[in-house]
Design a protein around this nucleic acid. Structure first.
Lengths: 265, 265
DNA sequence: CCCAATTTGTTCGTATGTATA
DNA sequence: TTATACATACGAACAAATTGG
């Protein structure tokens, strides 16, 4: 049976605007096709040979462009199946953005330790006008409507973290507290499935603060306790901001683990 | 003139132990040659064609192996010159491990902001026996001799950070306070030039603490102030631990900036 | 269960471009 | 200028995974 794939080509022989190495031009062209919605998350791309021919480049050149997009989590390749626009629903991706884990016993350094998924409990859902900080993060105008969500996260049954999520209301039109609470999977999966927004990467800034009375009460810590505060802007294709999130973390028995200096092993 | 390159080959046609794709075997072989000191930081590798022939693989296969090592900061390629074992002395690398920057004004989000180099002042240098945590981090036995160094770091003339560096004494044999203070360049550059140790990457764990009276006094903040504490193990080739460092950061006007979710733009 | 078609993964070789000394 | 090195591009052949018949 022929593949269930979109009619494949508006693949002009490549925009004349091209500059730099050919494989970069191809990469930009693929990015453009994704960012403009020509291919959306979950879609199967045409086979390599087809794309290469459609763009008028060799298969090796196309593969190099795809290599880079795979490395940036934009595309996913599966041998024997095809190349897909990334969905980010796998377990691997749950930890792409969840950086908190129990503090290991200093004695056994080598132990990698099984990472645990947090239990999320929604403790607030409200609509409001954005303040200046939120607006700057989401690149909207100050005062534009936003949705503010508060969650309490637990690991091994102990509350360790409070999240305050801010979303542009016009982007998440139709999102209700009920829909949010009853999502079948993760929050970023909800963005994906219900609003077509893929979170590809995030910018995070970390600082230390004293627990507010409100957060202290919610997490069961004493007011004024030293807490970690993580400010995250989640980005989609073309670096479009999707979510602004402020996480407050109780680091008595847990750490924020920085990514391993750019690459993994 | 012929290249100033080491006699080039003990490059057996590849260890029979090989498994997996050929380019991975080549990569492991190159890693082995570096980790065993066959090639040391700053060395020029033989030309691609020479290595490829020596290992009995095509030049494309060799390039793929080198590609990955370049991506992991182990090798550096320069068109027209050659491929080198990484030295990490360039300005770019100063920020590979320095994650603190001024908190931006929320108003201008877009501004990238020039990153500033910290001014480092040594405020302590002592020899001691390692405690359990230090020993685990450096993978030595508890009680083995270590060197403990304390630095105060300033940005724009304001003290914002305190570092406590722990080094295995037998690795840094001959390191004196004078030599440390009078190093011509950065600390990691000193490890490199005087002890042959390249810091390639680091593991970091971040938590919030209250300022100790000692650190509070040194940074001019009130005792009990919420501070960021970063525990870093710096790693060299083969994931060998080189340094254990605990940084205490005053985040009133600065942030710890996490790497951009694995890759850059 | 196996076979055939499809698709990505790996390896090879060659030719040409560009930067450097 | 010339020689050398890495960078880019192309194409071919085969391996490995997947799917459907």
């Amino acid at each position: 049976m022929p593949r269930a794939t979109l009619p494949a080509l508006h693949l002009a022989p490549l925009p004349a605007s091209g500059s730099g190495p050919l494989y970069r031009q191809v990469k930009r062209e693929l990015q453009r096709l994704i960012e403009t919605g020509r291919y959306t998350p979950g879609d199967t791309l045409p086979a390599e040979g087809v794309i290469a021919e459609g763009l008028g480049v060799s298969i090796g050149t196309l593969r190099r462009a795809v290599d880079e997009l795979v490395h940036e989590n934009v595309l996913v390749r599966r041998q024997g199946r095809g190349t897909f626009v990334a969905l980010h629903s796998s377990d691997r991706f749950l930890f792409q953005f969840f950086h908190v884990e129990p503090r290991p016993d200093p004695a056994h350094d080598a132990v990698p330790a099984e990472r645990e998924l947090p239990q999320v409990e929604c403790v607030g859902f409200a609509r409001a006008k954005s303040d200046e900080t939120e607006a700057a993060a989401l690149r909207i105008r100050t005062g534009e409507p936003v949705i503010r969500i508060q969650n309490r996260l637990s690991l091994s049954g102990r509350a360790v973290m409070h999240d305050r999520i801010v979303l542009a209301a016009f982007v998440f039109r139709g999102l209700t507290e009920k829909r949010f609470r009853e999502r079948p999977s993760t929050i970023y999966r909800l963005y994906q499935s219900d609003f077509g927004l893929s979170v590809l990467r995030a910018r995070e800034r970390v600082r230390a603060v004293h627990a507010s009375t409100e957060v202290a009460r919610m997490l069961g810590v004493s007011a004024g306790c030293a807490m970690l505060e993580v400010h995250r802007v989640a980005l989609s294709f073309g670096d479009r901001p999707v979510e602004y999130r402020v996480s407050t973390i109780h680091t008595a028995a847990h750490d924020y683990v920085s990514t391993l200096s750019k690459f993994e092993r």
